[in-house]
């Protein structure tokens, strides 16, 4: 019985970590779907979001709600700006050129943060103050519960947006066929900007949740969660929104279970190993579309 409770708790922890991965993975996946590029700087948006929240809450003493809204807005604007300056001129360039530019943006954001905030980790008191919840003998940390709720709500809103609004339909159209979408009168540039804004806003939310859980900031904090979220996006099938959600959650759960029951040192190896296995069996990811080349 104790083991069952323990397993369930680990699953819930994994679900929490996975939710954050999923939020970040959505940004990777949506941007990939629409701009066909791996936005390597996406992980660093989490870091920017975390520092922004720190500045608003600790240094400027703003109310939490205002700070959160400002953080999300700031990251959305940052996403649009990066796309306009660094990626838009490269729309017709080879994919590798765009990838290297994104790497450059990632270096830029990290080193700008390093310059402003220095390399020492900054402790940060969580903005979430929810007590541990007990269901029977299972206890869920307050922050985990908040992460689950916030992620769930974000995903529902995103799904509604993509499927029910005109802008969402435009996004899907552009990701299917940019040229055709343009001919149908869709403003492709605006749609791409919007995608970057939404992706970055989701990354900001992920960043806020992330530091509320780990309570420490440093300029390179976006790296590993960013890479793992990217893995999650590929695992689920890059370009697919439900795939990113599924990939993120799965990755979180696998990580949490292997940390708890196998080895915390090997957990990364296991996560990446699962990715390789899945791709070998299903080369376009779990929910990705198979594209057959015409001969």
């Amino acid at each position: 019985m104790k083991l069952v409770v323990n397993v369930i708790e680990q699953l819930i922890n994994g679900l929490g970590a996975g939710s954050i991965y999923a939020l970040i993975a959505l940004g990777y996946s949506m941007v990939y779907g629409i701009a066909k590029m791996i936005n390597f700087a996406h992980g660093d948006i989490i870091m920017v979001g975390a520092y922004a929240l720190y500045v608003f809450v600790v240094l400027l003493n703003l109310p939490v709600v205002a700070a959160v809204i400002l953080t999300i807005g700031l990251c959305a604007i940052l996403g649009i700006t990066v796309e306009r300056i660094a990626y838009k001129p490269l729309r017709k360039a080879p994919p590798l050129a765009v990838l290297i530019t994104a790497i450059g943006v990632s270096f830029f954001l990290q080193n700008a943060a390093l310059l402003i905030f220095k390399s020492n980790p900054i402790p940060f008191k969580s903005i979430v103050n929810v007590n541990t919840i007990k269901i029977g003998s299972i206890s869920i940390r307050g922050i985990t519960a908040v992460i689950l709720v916030v992620t769930f709500v974000s995903m529902i809103l995103l799904t509604l947006f993509i499927n029910k609004t005109k802008a969402g339909r435009a996004m899907r159209a552009v990701s299917e066929d940019k040229g055709a979408a343009q001919l149908m009168g869709i403003n492709v540039n605006r749609t791409i900007s919007m995608t970057f804004a939404i992706g970055s806003a989701l990354a900001a939310i992920a960043g806020i949740l992330f530091i509320s859980q780990y309570q420490s900031l440093n300029p390179f904090m976006g790296g590993l969660p960013g890479i793992k979220a990217f893995v999650a996006a590929v695992l689920g099938g890059i370009g697919s929104v439900p795939g990113a959600m599924l990939g993120g959650v799965l990755l979180g759960i696998i990580e949490s279970i292997s940390k708890a029951y196998i080895s915390s040192e090997l957990s990364d190896a296991i996560v990446f190993g699962v990715l390789i296995l899945v791709l070998l069996l299903k080369p376009s990811g779990l929910l990705g579309k198979n594209r057959i080349e015409k001969v």
Partner: peptide, 10 residues
């Protein structure tokens, strides 16, 4: 270095 990298690609 980061700025140079981006500038060179652009």
């Amino acid at each position: 270095y980061a700025i140079l990298l981006i500038a060179m690609m652009l």
